[in-house]
Simulated assay, not measured.
Amino acid sequence: MGTKLPIAAGRVSILIPSYLRADDLRNTLRYTMAQSYGDKEIIVVDDGTPNSTILDAVKEFPGAIYLRTPQNLGLIGARNYGAAHCTGEFILNLDDDSWLEDENGVEAIVTFMRNHPSTGVAALNIRLVERGYLWPVDSESCQLRTYKGCGNVYRREAIVAAGEYITEFCRQGEEVERSLRIIDAGFEIRSAPGVRIFHALSPINRNGPRHMAFEAVNYLRRELIRAPLWLLPVGCFRALRFAVRHRNDMDRKVYFSELLGKRVPLLTFVRRHRAPVRTLTYFTALQLRS
């Protein structure tokens, strides 16, 4: 991601990638447009939906910015594409089926980031219908190992320092890998329990076994490129253990296709991205809450 964008101090860019979920997107935009904070931009990235449904949905909300990727990039690629067009000091990342529950949510985000200047990423308090919130809403902020993609806020400097998501991951596990780079760059990842997000978990374009297969393969990819050399065997063992533990939850055909490098040759991937984090970073991340 380049650093030559006209960055506006205090502005919050709200970035929403979308693919096929026009009705879900309408709900998200309805809540997002109602945010009371003044200096915000709302950017929807249509990730190559093969019709005009996403564009039609965005047109219903004057002021929202519509972008379309040149081809279907996948969720990770769409996030990178959108972030490159954001002009805010802070970037609020939402899924097209997640939204802030409180009308002053964006204002609370800015206050939180100002009060925690070493925070590179704020992990917001996500609520699922059957599980409730991640943390009690009145609990104290704490350092975390990573964050969830459907509700987080980036400080611009953290993106510049850590770099973009790795698009070869395609989906799943990209936040954990990027978190290592963010921590290694000297930033913290902190919970923001008072900023509440509802995640509707749309069934459209959601395939649990396929997603778990990517989660397992990307665990291995992450260890291969980020683990310090002397800890590489340990990291690979942990990735293998994860895959065995979740073998009945995943699409094994997708797992072995990815593992064998049919889409992304593993050796090429490692050569391109191998840049281990410091040993201190690696152990710090292991000790933090996920």
Rank of each mutant, 00 (worst) to 15 (best):
G2M: 06
P6T: 11
P6Y: 02
R11C: 07
V12Q: 03
L15S: 00
P17N: 12
L20C: 03
T28D: 13
L29I: 01
V44P: 08
T49K: 10
P50T: 08
L55W: 12
A57F: 11
P62G: 01
I65C: 00
L67C: 06
P70K: 01
P70V: 08
L73P: 04
L75Q: 11
A78C: 09
Y81H: 11
F90Y: 12
F90H: 09
I91C: 00
L94D: 07
N104K: 04
E107T: 02
I109S: 08
T111Q: 15
F112Q: 09
M113H: 07
N115P: 02
P117Y: 06
R127C: 03
E130S: 13
L134D: 15
P136A: 03
S141A: 06
S141D: 11
S141Q: 04
S141M: 06
C142P: 05
C150F: 13
G151L: 06
A162I: 01
R171N: 12
R171T: 14
V176L: 14
L180I: 11
G186M: 14
G186F: 09
E188M: 03
R196W: 00
I197F: 05
P203T: 07
P209Q: 09
A213F: 06
E215G: 01
N218C: 09
Y219A: 14
R241Y: 14
F242D: 07
N248Y: 11
D249P: 02
M250A: 02
V254E: 14
S257C: 01
L260M: 05
R263F: 11
R263E: 13
F269V: 10
P276W: 08
V277C: 01
L280K: 13
T284Y: 15
L286A: 10
L288A: 13
